[in-house]
């Protein structure tokens, strides 16, 4: 619980007053037409959509999942956030192609690129999927806000989710996309300020850079361990061996008890014992420091195993047993000794083994750099597409995407330094649902009176801008691509804006359902949503831009297969115990292969798109890649100059 003083409340009241002013001011502009309600009249200079791109990459959940990966993997975890580098390539490739096409949204672009029944079905499918996706996004953003309010005010998780997401809905209902862009701009400024302030504060609270480095060099070694749920009422032991020589580094002196359940107080005591063992060099104790034979731990819970590896910095393997040593199971291989590895951006643990394999890194580089040639290779593309189309010119669109994502990558590095500072203060937290709140804890527990209110106003700004972005985007799909296109093509402007408002409300309700499904651990869901969920359509998203022969049937079949396969491989089959929970990069490649087995045969068994349709698209958008036959035809018809 955090107490707010007068100065804190003053900041929050000022912020809410500013939001009300923007909402009322832009209410009139949003009513002019749906081009204003959804695209701000397509006349924005590059720096406005750029701040908006930055703002959409900054939500209340972002510091949570970045803290989740950096607390666990050290600076190497930052590479998880590197996927957004796709924007750097896209700014000069797919962004330009998209802006030239003049499509409002990705679904509309698809109807220019594909034709016939396949394209129509695809547009319907994507309109429906987008409505789901925006509910899903709003669900985890709402949960993030719920966790923050739980931390500050001690509220139930649902209170923060319900109150502040509903507030965002009221804002966007009144002001439309103009309000979204302006909220993004002020949020971009406010958020960058608080991110810098809190992060510097975090580094200072941990004693400054030199102190952080020297402490990490003196801390004991650790590894995370989730005790198997079926090990209850047995006795466990741990063995740590040198990965090169196989010599014992540390092992349990006797065995420790594993209970079905232990009290919360006992659990908290174990956690502080582990943290104390990490922080202090034990002169009289060596070897395994936690858990020891006196400890009783709980089956199914997560713990930090702590040991003293002396001055050795060699890699180790960690094994555990629950049957007195007749069988051992490995929980970490090629793991680090000490804590200095956390400062290394490239702390690899081998080609395929350990927590940070080279294969993982190569996968991420491919995603980040080749992804920029496609459209939709990252789910961020869909809100970015709206930003791209609201820019004044093609060049403004390019600059805005590039500058916005450069800011994002700089921002992530500033965060990471503060999260390493948090690790120095609080090592040994094993539950990701708890340590993913690291950055917020630094802000709310260490900032002085007055600044806490400023931080909360900033968090509110971040939350409202994200909520309003996705409510507006989801409503745009429901209104333009679903209602206007299929249900009532003759609808008036006023009735379209009204349908936009009703669908905003439906999205709000759907987001509460996804809040329940997601629950408390945000980091794992974000890795799924930002990365693995789109694995099966990652390659098709590139092929549609660069390869003329790829048709709507191939693309639609990839989407239909990927939706089910991704949920099955990542969530459903592991939870029912059918397959083990695989490392994320392996899930990515498995989904790429499984889906290719669907869409490649479908593409070759169906006809290419109609040539007239392709030629018209080519002349308008000028795509790059394998477009030979279409380009020749366009030249023959005199639509583009032949060279």
């Amino acid at each position: 619980m955090i107490t707010f003083q007068f100065l804190d409340w003053l900041w929050i009241v000022l912020f809410v007053a500013l939001m009300v002013f923007f909402g009322v001011y832009f209410y009139r502009m949003g009513k002019r037409s749906q081009s204003d309600f959804f695209l701000a009249g397509r006349g924005l200079p590059w720096w406005l959509p750029a701040s908006s791109v930055y703002a959409t990459h900054t939500a209340t959940d972002t510091p949570i999942w970045v803290a989740g990966v950096v607390y666990k993997y050290g600076f190497s975890g930052l590479w998880y956030a590197f996927f957004s580098a796709w924007c750097a390539i896209s700014a000069f490739v797919s962004t330009r192609i998209f802006r030239r096409s003049l499509a409002y949204s990705q679904a509309e672009w698809q109807s220019l690129r594909f034709g016939g029944l396949g394209a129509e079905l695809l547009r319907g499918w994507l309109a429906g999927w987008q409505v789901f996706m925006n509910m899903f996004i709003l669900g985890w953003v709402g949960i993030a806000m719920g966790k923050i309010c739980q931390m500050i005010f001690g509220w139930d998780l649902w209170m923060g989710l319900f109150i502040f997401t509903t507030l965002g809905a009221i804002y966007v209902l009144s002001s439309g996309y103009w309000g979204v862009v302006m909220a993004d701009f002020q949020q971009g400024v406010v958020a960058f300020l608080i991110i810098v302030i809190v992060s510097i504060w975090g580094v200072v609270a941990a004693g400054g850079p030199d102190e952080i480095i020297s402490r990490l060099n003196s801390y004991s070694s650790t590894v995370e361990w989730e005790v198997p749920a079926d090990w209850e009422n047995r006795r466990g032991a741990i063995r740590i061996t040198d990965a090169e020589t196989g010599k014992a580094v540390a092992e349990s002196d006797g065995s420790f008890a594993i209970a079905t359940a232990i009290s919360e107080e006992a659990q908290a005591r174990l956690e502080s014992e582990a943290a104390a063992m990490i922080k202090s060099k034990q002169e009289e104790m060596a070897g395994l420091l936690f858990p020891t034979a006196e400890d009783e731990i709980q089956a199914g819970e997560k713990y930090t195993i702590v040991w003293d590896s002396g001055d050795s910095d060699s890699r180790v393997n960690v094994d555990v047993t629950a049957d007195g040593g007749s069988s051992w199971s490995r929980i970490a291989s090629q793991h680090f000794s000490g804590q200095a590895w956390r400062l290394n951006f490239f702390s690899f643990t081998g080609m395929f083994e350990g927590q940070f394999p080279v294969a993982w890194f190569i996968t991420m580089m491919i995603i980040a750099l080749i992804g920029g040639f496609g459209m939709g290779t990252s789910i961020d593309w869909y809100p970015e597409a709206q930003r791209i189309q609201s820019a004044k010119t093609v060049r403004d669109a390019s600059y805005s995407i590039w500058a916005g994502s450069a800011l994002v990558l700089i921002r992530n590095s500033i965060w990471a330094a503060a999260i390493i500072g948090f690790f120095v203060l609080y090592p040994g937290i094993a539950d990701s649902g708890e340590y993913e709140m690291a950055w917020y804890r630094i802000g709310f527990e260490y900032l002085p009176v007055g600044l806490i209110g400023f931080l909360f106003a900033g968090v509110l700004a971040i939350h409202l801008s994200t909520v309003s972005t996705h409510l507006n985007l989801g409503a745009m799909y429901a209104t333009r691509d679903f209602y206007h296109h299929y249900v009532n093509p003759k609808a008036s402007e006023a009735s379209l804006v009204k349908v936009g408002r009703i669908s905003t409300f439906v999205l709000l309700l759907g987001s509460f359902v996804f809040g329940v499904i997601i629950g408390e651990e945000i980091t794992a869901w974000l890795i799924f949503a930002l990365w693995i969920m789109a694995a099966g359509v990652w390659l098709p998203n590139i092929l549609q831009v660069i390869w003329w022969r790829f048709n709507s049937w191939g693309y639609l079949s990839a989407w239909m297969a990927n939706l089910g396969l991704s949920w099955l491989v990542v969530w459903i089959l592991p939870r029912f115990g059918v397959i083990p929970a695989l490392p994320d990069y392996l899930q990515f490649w498995i989904l790429i292969v499984l889906n290719a087995l669907v869409y490649l045969p479908v593409t070759f068994m169906t006809k290419p798109e109609n040539l007239d349709h392709l030629v018209a698209y080519y002349a308008m958008s000028r795509p790059i890649g394998f477009w030979g036959p279409v380009r020749k035809e366009a030249e023959r018809r005199g639509l583009i100059p032949s060279n």
Partner: peptide, 29 residues
Amino acid sequence: LGMTIAYVASFVGMIFAYLHYKKRERKES
């Protein structure tokens, strides 16, 4: 439940698209 909602939303969109396409085809013939 999460996967089911995603599939239902997407299929509803696609069914509307199919009906729309067929209606347009009938009109043209």
